[in-house]
Computed example of a mutant assay.
Amino acid sequence: MVFDLEIFSPVQQIRHPLFDEKGLKVFVKRDDMIHPVISGNKWRKLKYLLAEANKGGENHLVTFGGAYSNHLLATSAAAATFGFKSTGFVRGEDIHNDSLMLCRMHGMELIFVDRESYRNKPALFDKHFGNDDNAFYIDEGGASEAAARGCSELMDELPQIFDHIFCACGTGTTAAGILNGIITHQLTTILHAVPVLKNGGFIGDEIRNYAIDPNANFELHLDYHFGGYAKTTPQLISFVKDFVAQTGILIEPVYTGKMFYALFDQVRKNMFKPGSSLLAIHTGGIMGLFGMRDKFNK
């Protein structure tokens, strides 16, 4: 079976007075347009994992995520699309929300586990599916060399060479894939990785773990987590609202909002030479807005 989607992921320029003032051209790679549910980096990360499972004769995808996990939802949709069974371990108490409803609609069985047990994902997998030869383990967020390989293909689709590329990071897999693409194409492009969680320095190690050249250079911006994973501030919410209203590009405050905030802040601080070209990777994740209604309705 060929695991592929018709990728429609254009690159479009973002117009903003700040960029004109600084003499910069800023673009966004619209990976959010790949698929309504399996969008952004989610499909790129799952593509070769599905192929691995199929090759090994394993037709049951087992993975992990929080109650609003875009990865869980994307995996459930991919499983339904390509004929797999799916199970998701959900961190925390048994709750009902829109994201999990959509997971169930796509046929995913959900198993809620306490946060302490969730820390040892291989043990959870072995406990529930250790004797199931059809079960295929997918780490949280799809983190794997196969996922990095899928993300590296993004670089093959770009219409031009960019001086700088910005990417939000949760596990570092997408950034590693982009870095591998930069290395493979022998580009001088600088990768800017923006961890969306507190104390995200370990993301640098994760990127190097999946990089084909662990000594390759990239920049890690650790000051844009806004309190931690899925944490926000009024400042960040205001930025996201303004960005969407000014560009018509829908983003959310968990991943893409923090990445774009970092990009704008670095531009304001004159970190780029006039005439430079910047590319922001829209990694999807729009379903994350489901858990933010109260913050955006104020």
Rank of each mutant, 00 (worst) to 15 (best):
M105L: 14
H128Y: 15
E58I: 02
M108R: 11
H16G: 06
K25Y: 04
G150V: 09
D31Q: 10
T75E: 05
L102M: 14
R91M: 02
A78P: 06
D20N: 13
V37P: 00
L110H: 09
G92Q: 02
A67M: 10
K45H: 08
N97L: 11
Y68T: 06
I95C: 06
G88M: 04
S69D: 09
G141W: 02
S117E: 14
G66K: 13
R44Q: 09
G150M: 03
G66T: 07
N70E: 09
R119S: 05
K22W: 07
K127W: 04
K127I: 10
V28M: 10
D94A: 14
V26E: 01
V113E: 05
H71E: 07
F84V: 07
F89G: 05
D139R: 10
K85C: 01
K47M: 12
E52I: 09
L72S: 08
T87P: 07
M101R: 13
H96R: 14
R30D: 00
N97G: 02
M101N: 09
D98H: 08
N59W: 07
L124R: 06
G92L: 04
D32N: 05
Y118A: 07
D139I: 07
G83S: 09
I34K: 06
T87L: 08
A74T: 12
V62F: 06
E145Q: 11
A148R: 01
A78S: 08
S69M: 10
H106P: 08
A148E: 00
F82A: 03
Y118N: 07
N120E: 02
S39Q: 13
N97I: 04
A77S: 14
K127E: 12
S99T: 15
R30C: 09
Y68F: 15
F89V: 09
E153C: 10
L18E: 12
M105N: 06
L46E: 07
D32Y: 02
V62I: 15
G150H: 05
E21Y: 13
V113Q: 09
E52S: 14
K29S: 04
I95S: 06
E21R: 14
G66S: 11
S86C: 13
